[in-house]
């Protein structure tokens, strides 16, 4: 029954782009993309209960790495992995400091926010990575450069990302790893008393989560064709990720997806200007060069 339901849902999602308008496809891309990010956050924030409010840092690192590597002639398909690996390294640094020094709850939130903010400030001050203006990617439409003429390619990629994230979480959930994480969330002291290496598992959760989020960063960069320090490293993006997971149900397999399906369409009509630009670009089906993006700070959809 469960399998049949899942397969039907998958079949519907696979077939949808053939009947949807370009505008609706764009909305679905955003739904899948945010569901993926929320799912990645879910590993460390939901299952392990270690509230990170700095996941935007991983998005930014992933996106910037892939975009910069493309300038050196390295395809984003490879850059994506490099970016994700770098995000994982950053995740392990934050995780090491946070968990080794035993920061919990509010203190961990602040630490992750502080790291994301440091990344944001550095990115906007280092001219080699575009400074405050950020990076713009020239649209070539070349699939080897992670760019597609056809909206539907992005649709399937985003769907694949979401399924990948969910698959990873499902795998974790069934193993000892997932059970340890849930136990750590419920009672860390008891876990330690029983001999669970809590530090190791929290680190692992953080690294896996950061890696996946870094992958998402590459998608973000090559979907919007622009990276601005204030949007990709900003607190609002981290919050977007968290509220999706929390509203759908943090620490559950389908929660982040549900949350994204509820919140993303709600946010579209009043979404950040860079998304609006993207939607405006895709509305007439044919895409031209990306419109210049205003430098206003993003306004967030009402939650």
């Amino acid at each position: 029954m469960k399998w049949a339901l899942g397969l039907t849902a998958l079949a519907v999602l696979l077939g949808l782009p053939t009947v949807l308008s370009g505008y609706a496809v764009t909305i679905f891309v955003l739904i899948f993309f945010y569901a993926f990010l929320a799912q990645a956050w879910n590993i460390v924030g939901g299952y392990a209960g270690q509230l990170s409010a700095g996941h935007a840092a991983f998005v930014g690192v992933g996106g910037y790495t892939a975009a910069l590597l493309l300038d050196r002639g390295i395809t984003p398909w490879l850059g994506m992995l490099v970016g994700a690996a770098l995000a994982a390294v950053l995740g392990s640094i934050i995780g090491y400091l946070g968990f080794r020094f035993g920061l919990r709850g509010f203190y961990l939130v602040l630490l992750t926010v502080a790291f994301a903010e440091v990344c944001r400030i550095l990115a906007s001050n280092i001219d080699a990575v575009g400074g405050a203006v950020g990076l713009y990617i020239t649209f070539t439409g070349n699939p080897r450069q992670f760019q597609f003429q056809d909206q539907r390619a992005y649709y399937y990629l985003a769907l694949a990302l979401m399924l990948l994230g969910t698959g990873v979480v499902a795998l974790i959930e069934r193993r000892r790893f997932g059970i340890y994480l849930t136990a750590i969330r419920e009672d860390e002291g008891a876990c330690e008393a029983l001999g669970v290496p809590t530090f190791k598992y929290k680190m692992l959760a953080m690294v896996v989560s950061a890696f996946l989020t870094g992958l998402g960063g590459t998608f973000y960069a090559f979907y919007l064709f622009s990276l601005q320090p204030n949007t990709v490293f900003g607190i609002p993006l981290s919050v977007e990720i968290i509220i999706r997971a929390v509203i759908g149900g943090a620490g559950t397999l389908l929660g982040p997806i549900l949350g994204s399906f509820i919140l993303t369409p709600l946010g579209v009509p009043i979404s950040p200007p860079h998304h609006q630009a993207r939607l405006a670009m895709t509305a007439p089906e044919k895409r031209t060069a990306p419109a210049p993006i205003s430098n206003r700070p993003p306004t967030r959809p009402a939650a």
Binding site: L97, L110, A114, F115, V118
Partner: peptide, 8 residues
Amino acid sequence: FSLLILIL
């Protein structure tokens, strides 16, 4: 922010 991280 660096001060904050250190203090934390």
